[in-house]
Amino acid sequence: MSDSVNSKQEDRRDFLKAGGLVAGITLAPGLLFYGVAQSRAPEEGVSSRQRWGMLIDTTKCADGCNDCVTACNTENGLSGKTGPQDSQWIRKLNVKDLHTGYVQSLPMMCQHCENPPCVDVCPTGASTKRADGIVLVDRHACIGCRYCMMACPYKARSFVHEPLHDQKPDVPRGKGCVESCTFCVQRVDKGEQPACVEACDAKGHKAMVFGDLKDPQSAISRALKSTDSVEVRADLALGTGVRYQGI
């Protein structure tokens, strides 16, 4: 009696094991794909299985359009003032070829380098690159020495020169620290697009594509594969997360 029960249970266990194995083999690739493509659970940390990046098509970026800048200011609580001491996380550049006279317009911001000079030079480690490639300033450790601003080839960083009030709850900012574009990390962590990209899409220009460079199925990966794109100051070999096409 007991023997037969045991053997039956063992049979069942074997069956379940086998079934599980088969199911595992068939489902695993799908599950893995699911794991990469879906946004993280809130308690799960970022991982290097993702790398956020952006592709900017300068041919679609309109001269005189400033929507990405405005959206950034609104999302992150920047004043929008453009004095020499005011913060600008993203700015529109007018680039004129000196030989041909051809003028292009493009947005410039933190390029979220693979090997960021700002992270290298930061004495306290406040400048940091998350596992998913987003370069941030940890304001809790920033002493305001501004060495990162000296080191950044893209002039992407700003120093907060005066006390601030009424910051956005998701975007803490304050006097005496250095700051720059975060790819709207507060939105990306929720599975949303950066504000600039959303604004560009809303305007119908669709000059900016944001996504996971390590996901071969993502729109940005496919776009990068099919078009020629460049890093700004590629000679420095920083491996920027932001790439440009059309320049």
């Binding site: 009424d166 620290c177 944001f210 996504g211 940005i220």
Partner: peptide
Amino acid sequence: CHATKPGKQVPDAKPVLPQHGG
């Protein structure tokens, strides 16, 4: 640095969609 007041659209009623950003 941190906001001393809650944000305007709080509490966030809509659940965060497991949608992949872009």
